[in-house]
């Protein structure tokens, strides 16, 4: 009667019940004795079992695996169970409405499933109010980073070609990008990382609760891209005409060195990332000119010459 999928589902439910019921960690062989429906053949059973554990872990079941000589498995109830947030109907409706209005797509981040868990879903379809929506950028590392921020667990990541160990303090979404604010353990200083510029995987290391976040983490200020570097290399002088002066300042070049009578300005721009600064200056086209220092001006000229070909 049952299909292959039914058998797989039944096996998963039974395995999860057995893991939750156990007071002591259990080995694979013990678990397979308790849960029928595993293949007779040992190799196939082993494969099916590790696949099942993976499926459970991916959906967020906290399967503790002790990799001893004979690995053991358990799921602690207190780690499995969602504490009841005791949302009122009004609060639940506000949450549903928020999720219908703001779109943030993450792997293993289904908003519908989250609402099933928190509120038992919604009896009636709730859609965004006419006239207003928002979309936030998604990124595959965000779930891992968020878990590390909340768990106060150090992470290792590759950034700008270097491996770093970071105490993650806070995530922020600004100007359409996600940033991680944290403390770089090697450099012994606070840093800001753009999440979509992290190379490869993010690896949590060591125990949770490993560091204290500074009291009331200072809100990470919107970092203009030309400040995303390890140190300020020079302060550039950028002339911007009256039409785009406000626009340029809104992008983060806030310091006005000189206000000219025609409404144009000379901005003092500290630069840690020369490529990003060049890109910013050029995006203003005829409305701007890099006045100095000579190395910044020369870099623009070289770039333009290469562009003209």
């Amino acid at each position: 009667m049952g299909t292959e999928q039914d058998r797989k589902l039944e096996r998963l439910v039974d395995l999860l019940a057995a893991l939750l019921e156990a007071r002591e960690p259990r080995t694979r062989v013990e678990l397979q004795r308790l849960v029928p429906l595993y293949p007779e053949d040992d190799v196939a059973a082993r494969r099916a079992f590790s696949r099942d554990v993976e499926v459970l872990a991916r959906m967020g079941v906290p399967v503790e695996v002790d990799d001893g000589q004979v690995p053991t498995y358990r799921v602690r109830r207190e780690a499995y169970e969602l504490p009841d947030p005791r949302l009122t109907e009004e609060e639940a409706a506000a949450l549903h409405l928020a999720l219908a209005t703001v779109d943030l797509d993450l792997p293993e981040g289904s908003a519908a499933e989250a609402l099933w868990k928190l509120t038992g879903g919604a009896a009636e379809r709730i859609s965004a109010p006419a006239g207003s929506t928002a979309t936030l950028p998604g990124h595959e590392h965000l779930g891992t980073l968020w878990a590390a921020v909340n768990g106060r667990q150090r992470i290792r990541l590759a950034y700008r070609g270097e491996l770093r160990e970071v105490e993650p303090w806070q995530l922020s979404c600004q100007r359409g990008h996600w940033y991680l604010q944290g403390f770089d353990a090697h450099r012994q200083s606070e840093r800001l990382y753009r999440v979509d510029r992290i190379d490869g995987a993010v690896e949590p290391i060591g125990p949770t609760g490993a560091f204290a976040r500074p009291a009331a983490t200072r809100r990470a200020t919107p970092p203009p891209p030309w400040l995303l570097g390890d140190e300020v290399r020079y302060v550039a002088r950028l002339w911007v005409d009256a039409a785009l002066a406000d626009f340029a300042r809104a992008q983060g070049a806030t310091e006005v060195e000189e206000q000219r009578p025609d409404g144009s300005v000379v901005l003092a721009v500290p630069v840690a990332n020369a490529e990003a600064f060049r890109s910013f200056a050029l995006s203003l086209l005829d409305h701007a000119e890099v006045l100095g220092p000579p190395e910044a001006r020369a870099a623009v000229v070289d770039w333009l010459e290469a562009t003209v070909g």
Partner: peptide, 12 residues
Amino acid sequence: PLRLTPAQGLVL
């Protein structure tokens, strides 16, 4: 219910 995944928590 099962706890939220980190990604679900962040989305909310």
